[in-house]
């Protein structure tokens, strides 16, 4: 379970997140929506303990991710925005490296995630030589390693062509069982397809936290009404 309680984050004079609260339970796929600079990435980084909240509290499985970094990160798979990777490494080498750090020393697990994200033919390729779509899949494979209970995906389909987007979407749906997935995106139709719940943020505050509208196009309408 993830609890974000009255969290505020200030960078100098800029308030990136202002009194944000929400919870995420097992089995939920939360679509995290908001315009650029709304505070989506900052909130995700707060959940991971990568930054310290100015005020408020973040709990991951009832633990503070800053005070219990190692315990909480064992259960989280993270795909950061722009997906930074070690370009000089080969795909399998990189995934084995992440697996070792996560304590998943079994090469079979590496092969499993390689199969899951469908990058077997690029397993021996250097990451810097891969297309954006493949790189995104490598990042996702790294996040999936160790079968974490929580997946935090910051714009997992950004910059991908429609076919690649579809593949990533299906993969998220496939892996969602018994997990908490929080993913941010600008593509509203994507949220309609995958998410079970919506959290919409605007100017650092949560403007909507609830069920996804059932009607087709409902997410877009809701988003426009609250944000635009």
């Amino acid at each position: 379970m993830i609890t974000v309680k009255n969290v505020t984050k200030q960078f100098g004079k800029t308030q990136a997140v202002n009194d944000v609260s929400f919870t995420a339970q097992k089995g939920e796929i939360i679509g995290f929506l908001g315009p650029n600079g709304a505070g989506k990435t900052t909130t995700m980084r707060l959940i991971l303990g990568l930054i310290r909240p100015t005020q408020g509290e973040v709990l991951v499985n009832r633990l503070d991710p800053l005070a219990h970094r190692m315990e909480t990160l064992q259960h989280i798979g993270y795909l950061p925005e722009n997906n930074p990777l070690y370009g000089e490494m080969k795909v399998r080498e990189y995934l084995s490296f992440v697996a070792e750090i996560k304590g998943v020393s079994n090469e079979e697990d590496v092969s499993t995630v390689i199969g899951q994200v469908d990058i077997s033919e690029k397993a021996q390729a250097k990451i810097e030589e891969l297309s954006r779509g493949y790189r995104q899949r490598v990042g996702l494979a790294a996040a999936l390693l160790g079968n974490p209970h929580i997946l935090i995906l910051d714009e997992p389909t950004s910059g991908l062509d429609p076919i690649e987007q579809e593949k990533i979407k299906n993969l998220i749906k496939k892996t969602a069982k018994n997990k908490i997935i929080i993913f941010s995106t600008h593509i509203l139709s994507e949220v309609e397809d995958i998410a079970t719940r919506l959290v919409i943020v605007s100017r650092g505050t949560v403007v909507y936290d609830g069920d996804k509208p059932k009607r087709k196009g409902g997410v877009e309408k809701l988003f426009k009404k609250l944000v635009v």
């Binding site: 990568l50 950061p80 930074p84 990777l85 750090i101 996560k102 790294a142």
Partner: peptide
């Protein structure tokens, strides 16, 4: 600079 530090710090390593 390349933000790979964020990847490292999101893994269970001190």
């Amino acid at each position: 600079r390349t933000n790979t530090m964020e990847v490292l710090l999101s893994l269970p390593v001190s």
